[in-house]
Design a protein around this nucleic acid. Structure first.
Length: 225
DNA sequence: GCGACAG
DNA sequence: ATCTTGTCGC
């Protein structure tokens, strides 16, 4: 999509933190898009004994949730996993995958947090600001914030709060199943993000976007390793 | 000081 | 993230 984005990020830890604080100011927290026809899912899988990794982007048609395009890239990890700096590890390969896409998505669902992050700039926000595209953060576990347990029925939710500020929503996507953590990534409001995530979870706990991308990367990793 | 800490 | 297929239960 954007050929000017750098692939090599030689940031020190403090430089990365400073960049997050700076870019966090650019996050847009309201709906800024027209019709959503294509939704992207992103994921990365890691080799256990080498530094090889596989990144994938899948594009789903918004109403049928059918996969209409998928891209896979192999890469080498260049940044360790550090809580709070997750995007600096996963974004380089994800960007390479995005640049091979033919279909430009109207919305991206990320496997990780958006503004539900120590500096309000998790993976989803970082990807959204870099590509100037609507994104939603969708985490399986909590990084930040406190909440009351949402009701046990599908669609129930409760606010994720930090310092009296709502930074996300804890959403029950299936009856009696552990909830997921949804937050604004970029160019979308929290209510709209919650609605889309629920639509993307007609049958399972995680969004179809995440499931499709996850299956693709792990099968690819298993195949050529 | 102690525990927690997206994937 | 990764170790892990089928199987038991609502």
């Amino acid at each position: 999509m954007d050929p000017l984005i750098k692939h090599t990020w030689n940031f020190t830890e403090s430089e990365a933190v400073d960049l997050q604080k700076q870019l966090a100011l650019k996050v847009i927290q309201n709906d800024q898009f027209n019709k959503i026809n294509y939704i992207a899912g992103v994921d990365v899988a890691y080799s256990e004994d080498t530094d090889k990794l596989i990144a994938a982007v899948v594009i789903l048609e918004a109403t049928s949730l059918n996969v209409v395009e998928s891209v896979v890239v192999e890469d080498v990890s260049q940044f360790p996993y550090i809580p709070g700096l997750f995007s600096f590890r996963e974004l380089p390969p994800i960007i390479k995958a995005f640049e091979k896409l033919v279909t430009i998505p109207d919305l991206v669902v990320c496997d990780g947090q958006g503004i539900a992050h120590p500096r309000r700039f998790g993976l989803a926000s970082h990807l959204g600001v870099l590509f100037n595209i609507p994104t939603i953060g969708c985490g399986k576990t909590r990084l930040l914030g406190e909440n009351v347990e949402p009701e046990s029925s599908r669609g129930s939710c409760s606010p994720l709060i930090v310092d009296d500020q709502v930074i996300g929503t804890v959403l029950r996507t299936q009856d009696n199943v552990k909830p997921i953590y949804v937050s604004i990534g970029h160019k979308i409001s929290l209510p709209t993000a919650r609605e889309w995530i629920l639509k993307l979870c007609p049958k399972y706990r995680l969004p179809e976007t995440t499931r499709q991308a996850d299956q693709l990367v792990r099968k690819t990793l298993a195949k050529d390793s």
